[in-house]
């Protein structure tokens, strides 16, 4: 039996979200709230858009509240009212994405009512939604989470986060393992991973930062990246994607969650985040930055790799 993770606060969190949602909808502070609701499968949740105070009771928060709802503010906002403030339920990792989107002029703070969730972790995509949260079933990203308590939100339920068992950072371990290999071994690893890719672009669809109207990888004049799902094009796609997310990715790991072929995509993003932290002391956080690490510079940046 692996170490259980205490998620007892989630019922209090759910109650608090419902009360707050009802209050702000009734008071007309927001026109809609994006949150989680129970889904048909046992224990699962699905995103919901609540526009009526009476429906606020549908909102819940459970270890199966895996989605990054930030997506519903930008790319997937078809059902979101066009006028008024929008409330949104955010975990720390999701908030980082929203903050990143604000830095890239895709969202405005004033248009949002942020309901922050004190989060003990959510389930990995590979387990059933009704599974209990343990050190084994927790999502990889949660093992290295430094943002369990969102800050600068409009509302955060007043509950005490339980102490967490020490979890080994799954990405850190895997990155270290790959870094220790030879280039040829790493190439073989990624070749096998990327070979699985079916170019469904689910990773792109779900990524809050893939907000380009026309993706570079869909262009054919000139064709920068082969669009067919063949190994050469797949590899190029994932390299270009990781590069475009470098210094922007907030670490929500949605790409990895939705990948039907289980390609460890967030590993690339975490590796880039690690490098940018080491090189430029940059990390995605709760503070809106004017510029990211790759849109600014200092005259003293490392150039040990340049002859």
């Amino acid at each position: 039996m692996t170490e259980p993770i205490d998620t007892s606060i989630y019922s209090a969190v759910t109650a608090a979200i419902q009360t707050e949602a009802q209050r702000i909808l009734a008071a007309g502070l927001v026109t809609a709230i994006v949150g989680y609701a129970a889904s048909r499968r046992n224990g699962s949740t699905q995103p919901i858009i609540v526009t009526d105070a009476a429906a606020a009771e549908k909102l819940i928060f459970t270890p199966a509240s895996v989605n990054n709802l930030a997506l519903y503010l930008t790319k997937a906002k078809k059902e979101i009212p066009k006028k008024g403030k929008i409330g949104i339920v955010v975990k720390g990792c999701d908030l980082k994405a929203i903050v990143g989107l604000m830095g890239e002029a895709q969202l405005k703070r004033n248009d949002l009512y942020l309901i922050g969730v004190p989060c003990a972790g959510v389930l990995a995509s590979t387990v059933q939604p009704s599974t209990a949260l343990t050190a084994d079933t927790i999502a990889s990203k949660c093992t290295e989470c430094d943002a369990r308590l969102p800050s600068d939100c409009d509302y955060v339920p007043n509950v005490q986060l339980p102490t967490q068992p020490q979890l080994a950072g799954k990405y850190a371990v895997e990155i270290a393992r790959l870094e220790a290999l030879t280039p040829a071994e790493r190439w073989a690893y990624w070749k096998e991973q990327f070979a699985k890719c079916i170019k469904c672009y689910a990773c792109r669809q779900v990524c809050p930062f893939c907000f380009c109207e026309q993706c570079l990888c869909d262009r054919n004049k000139p064709q920068m990246v082969d669009t067919t799902p063949r190994p050469a094009g797949n590899t190029a796609w994932h390299i270009v994607r990781a590069m475009h997310l470098a210094g922007r990715c907030a670490g929500c790991a949605e790409c990895e969650r939705v990948c039907p072929m289980d390609i460890p995509l967030n590993l690339l993003n975490r590796k880039m985040a690690k490098e940018l932290k080491e090189l430029y002391d940059y990390e995605a956080g709760f503070e809106v930055n004017d510029k990211g690490p790759l849109t600014t510079y200092t005259d003293k940046d490392d150039q040990s790799f340049i002859k």
């Binding site: 890239e104 002029a105 380009c212 026309q214 004017d290 849109t295 600014t296």
Partner: peptide
């Protein structure tokens, strides 16, 4: 303009 989504990375650099 049809492709620009206004992230203003260009403006930053």
């Amino acid at each position: 303009e049809s492709g620009c989504v206004g992230c203003f990375a260009c403006k930053k650099v």
